[in-house]
Nucleic acid binder design. Structure first.
Lengths: 253, 253
DNA sequence: GTAAAACTATTTACGTTGTACAGTATAACG
DNA sequence: CGTTATACTGTACAACGTAAATAGTTTTAC
């Protein structure tokens, strides 16, 4: 089904995010904890991707039937919420007070990129609403600190952070897609080869053919996400730099 | 299943993209064309989203059984490829030679944003490999023209275009997600309300609470994609502006 | 000490997906 | 005519999330 969070009961999800459930007063002792379920689900998604994350496989990994998982978690959407927040909670949050803003923002980007590498499914989760759990709150607090002392209005800090993270996650998604296509690259060109003469018609598409070929040659592939990350991050920081300079010169007036 | 393109036979897909199939020499006359199928699928996805795009519904809309769709199209992945390329082909490609580069790039962004509004599913398609069809080629050619005369190396034009489009599509995805969550906003806050005191603990998360509240108040919602677009696009252009200025001053030396 | 209640865990089942396969109807070629 | 290529359909399968019914286990109330 949909890899979408926030589908379920909001109050129930928030309870799961913030409260460690007290052991039940009656009945058999639970053989597992919510954390066990979240860890198992994360392991499955880490190993084989979001598409392979099924309730049945989570149960299997826990040595338990599929429906037992529903004893701990109301549904798949809530499970994704919990997985995301747990992943956020585990992120590096080194304090970087004193460093210049470019280093600080570069570090924030790197932390989020690392998250997407440790858990390739993160960038693929469709977050209809942010998972207001302790992990997200700690992450947001940590990341906002990187904008301290720049003279940006509060709302602009949030804008700038969203902008920075939006870039990182978009790049992570592209990286995933490129990795999925990678193994079959040679095979693809072998199949497609004979038909490419028409596509690479220089008179019909002069710029596309010239620049496409140049880009492909420079990267050895159709798309190089690592290179796109470096290029993009530099542009993001330059763009924010203009904004920060404007704010500084306005204050000086 | 996965909303992923490029899954099928590359040669077959390219043929479908570039050749209008000749009518068959023998056997009953086809009641439909590939274009019919693509149009029906696009209509379904436009109306009810990628999640509602099923082969059965496409067949239904064409007055034909599900399996008949497979007579025209090898599978769902290829159908998505065709849908994408057809959507690209229909985009506005007004020539903007003579305008300054900021206007040109702003227009490119707007065209792609419009595409994502006309066809909300576009941003949600996972393109493992670009759909090398006539639509994409024409689009790529048109968009590269916006970088003419800026003094950027070929490879950098491609980088910059990818960077610009990456921003637009990421924003479109966010816009979709926000729209999906919109209707249930009030209900969500009603359910979540009693638990938010803990979340909005100012001593634990001083910046997050202050800035989160400011951002929420300024936008009347948790996230305003239109505002994020304006903010982000300005930053993208500023960032590329730095690059373009560098290229210009390097040439002047 | 026993009965009820509360809770965990399992089994079975439903509806939905993409699509493989087998079969039938239809038209043009030899 | 028969052969052959094609269009189209019905059935079937494995996998999905999860509702419903059921069984098993422990604590509480009497």
């Amino acid at each position: 089904m949909a890899e979408r969070t926030g589908g379920g009961d909001a109050a129930k999800t928030l309870h799961l995010l913030w409260d460690e459930a007290a052991p039940p007063r009656r009945g058999p002792r639970p053989g597992l904890t919510v954390a066990d379920v979240v860890a198992a689900a994360t392991a499955v998604a880490d190993a084989d991707g979001l598409g392979a994350l099924t309730i049945r496989r989570v149960g299997e990994r826990l040595g338990v039937s599929a429906m037992t998982v529903y004893t701990y978690v109301p549904g798949k959407a809530e499970l994704l919420d919990l997985m995301l927040d747990a992943a956020y909670r585990a992120m590096d949050r080194t304090d970087r007070t004193g460093q210049d803003w470019r280093s600080r923002l570069t570090a924030i980007a790197a932390e989020n990129r690392q998250l997407c590498r440790d858990h390739p499914w993160v960038a693929g989760v469709y977050t209809a609403r942010p998972t207001l759990g302790p992990g997200l709150m700690a992450k947001y607090e940590h990341e906002l600190a990187a904008f301290d002392g720049l003279g940006l209005p509060d709302v602009t800090c949030d804008d700038a952070l969203s902008y920075l993270l939006g870039f990182v996650y978009a790049n992570a998604r592209d990286e995933r897609a490129a990795a999925a296509a990678a193994g079959t690259d040679q095979q693809w060109w072998a199949q497609a080869g004979p038909l490419l003469a028409r596509i690479f018609d220089e008179s019909a598409y002069p710029r596309a053919v010239r620049i496409g070929a140049a880009a492909g040659a420079a990267r050895g592939s159709a798309y190089d996400p690592a290179q796109a990350y470096e290029f993009g991050l530099a542009r993001v920081l330059d763009g924010l730099g203009v904004l920060i300079d404007q704010a500084a010169s306005r204050r000086r007036q």
